[in-house]
Design a protein around this nucleic acid. Structure first.
Length: 496
RNA sequence: GACCCAUUAGCUCAGUCGGCAGAGCACCUGACUUUUAAUCAGGGUGUCCCAGGUUCGAAUCCUGGAUGGGUCACCA
């Protein structure tokens, strides 16, 4: 509440009640409170028992929660308290708690935090509840909660005031609990495979490791611009050079791009590098880690996403990008051809190109415009063209393509991986090609990174690397249609 | 960035052809000792997103803007 804001009746009433509490010697913002049970613990232990069985146990319980429903009935009241585990009904009688405490309870507002000490019982209607012997006022709520039946639906309010969304919509909390479990499961799996988790800088001197526009920031004391990282890649590969053979980081990356149901400017990536491995090994690892997470967190490898039923059970399809383009369009990019011939094919098939695109870009455009959205079941698409893969090793048989794959599920990219380019001379040429692209207007082309090249020149073992977008994986496993549903506080414009 | 849609009470939403701003929940007053979207009686609490314009008169029509959502673009 800003200082000057005039209080409407709803807000003023609550402030008046706060004063009344103070006058009666009750702290409106109280102190520690020791409880014996959560709401769910009581339900788990007693809900299956009969009214008589519960009565015979005469089980004391101390609970605490937010008052979310209240049904006053003269000298007795029913209400529901909500804690992190769920809701439980309480029954407060004037003749049990005394006049003072009953007054405190009946004048409490929805949203206030209350502690109850009493015994577990079951009502005539069969709801397991706690009958109060003592009422402790814990904390005052000065603003009214959203409506109890319809909840909070306004999407903008749900994102801007996520706490209200969490109070009113139980599914939301479940999604974020699942998100936490997914990440924990991922860590446990990788740790079990002997990977070392590390933390590398998010402030970079050169924004590399991906093709994306960065956020620029400034360090005052050094008087220099820094970039928020767009990928973790180049630092983890330096660690491979340093002899850490299995390494990963789960962390935030930042890309200065558009916002959509699948893109947030900051998002969470897993990146992982394994010495002496190639992209085939990484495919196996990717399958293993995702099916492990699904089994561990959801207990199944068959999941529902929107209208689709997805089989996450192994093995997943593995298809070359050129074969997929051929399958879906009839165009055969295995044949040797000039950039001009490729452009002609794009024109014939209605594939839109930007100026300066070469053979490799055009193959990729065919894939993105004609194939990608059709890959519903898990599919490893491999063999991406060199032109769009400046950090991947070339394929030995056909150097137009690389030993790289992307994982597609429900038509979306979920992972990107390759046999890492460890030839510093080739890497320099790739960077130089990217710099040329940049000068031709591709502002997402990769910049030259001399420091990284120097690291490669000391010798990097053959290495397989992987990136998984955690947010999209959570979307998939929680059946969430928008990335904002799996981010507690998605990026929004400043309120006008 | 383009196009489409939305914005009315704390929340969820109506509002007809341009003619006094509405409902339910929440809230306030009262009744009520096993209720549960408690019930009963009474009470409307508002910058109709903002700024202009048209009109005797605008929540409603027009123009511009803000915020959000969707689609597209961007995102290897």
């Amino acid at each position: 509440m800003s200082q000057g804001e005039e209080l409407n009746e709803l807000l003023q009433v609550r402030r008046d009640k706060l004063e009344t509490l103070r006058e009666r010697g009750i702290a409106p913002f109280g102190h520690r409170f020791e409880r014996t049970h959560t709401a769910q613990e009581i339900l788990d232990a007693f809900d299956a028992l009969s009214k008589e069985e519960i009565e015979a146990k005469n089980q004391p319980a101390v609970i605490a929660g937010r008052l979310v429903a209240k049904r006053k009935q003269g000298k007795a009241s029913f209400a529901h308290l909500q804690d992190q585990s769920g809701k439980i009904q309480i029954y407060v009688r004037k003749d049990q708690v005394g006049e003072e405490a009953y007054e405190t309870f009946t004048t409490a507002d929805l949203g206030d935090w209350i502690g109850i000490s009493g015994v577990v019982f079951k009502t005539n209607r069969g709801e397991t509840s706690v009958k109060a012997k003592e009422v402790t006022f814990l904390s005052k709520s000065l603003r009214p909660l959203p409506e109890k039946f319809h909840g909070l639906k306004d999407v903008e309010l749900r994102y801007r005031k996520r706490y209200l969304d969490l109070i009113m919509n139980p599914d939301v909390k479940d999604t974020f609990i699942t998100r936490s479990r997914i990440i924990r499961s991922m860590r446990q799996y990788l740790d079990g495979q002997g990977f070392l988790e590390v933390e590398t800088p998010t402030l970079h001197n050169i924004p590399g490791g991906a093709a994306a526009r960065p956020f620029i920031t400034h360090h005052n004391a050094l008087d220099m611009d820094l970039y928020m990282r767009i990928a973790i890649e180049l630092h983890l590969k330096r660690l491979i050079v340093g002899g850490i053979e299995k390494v990963y980081e789960i962390g935030r990356v930042y890309r200065n791009e558009g916002i959509s149901t699948r893109h947030n400017p900051e998002f969470t990536m897993l990146e992982l590098y394994q010495a002496f491995a190639d992209f085939h090994d990484i495919m196996d690892l990717t399958e293993n880690v995702i099916t492990h997470i699904a089994q561990d967190v959801l207990g199944t490898d068959t999941i529902t996403y929107g209208e689709h039923t997805i089989q996450l059970g192994k093995p997943w399809a593995r298809k070359h990008i050129v074969d997929l383009v051929k399958e879906h369009t009839g165009v055969d990019f295995w044949q040797e051809m000039s950039d001009e011939q490729a452009r002609q094919l794009a024109k014939e098939h209605g594939v839109e190109l930007k100026p300066g695109m070469t053979f490799g870009h055009i193959v990729n455009e065919f894939f993105e415009q004609k194939v990608e959205e059709k890959l519903i079941q898990p599919t490893f698409v491999y063999g991406h063209p060199v032109a769009i893969s400046p950090l991947a090793q070339k394929n030995e048989q056909d150097p137009r393509f690389t030993d790289r794959f992307e994982l597609f599920i429900v038509g979306r990219e979920h992972a990107n991986a390759f046999t890492e380019l460890n030839d510093p001379i080739d890497q320099r040429e790739r960077f130089e090609a990217q710099v040329r692209e940049k000068s031709q207007g591709n502002d997402e082309a990769h910049p030259m990174d001399e420091d990284f090249l120097e690291a490669l020149e000391y010798g990097m073992p053959p290495t397989g690397g992987l990136g998984i977008g955690i947010d999209r994986l959570v979307m998939l496993l929680t059946n969430s249609p928008s990335i904002r549903d799996v981010l507690l506080f998605p990026t929004l414009r400043d309120q006008g």
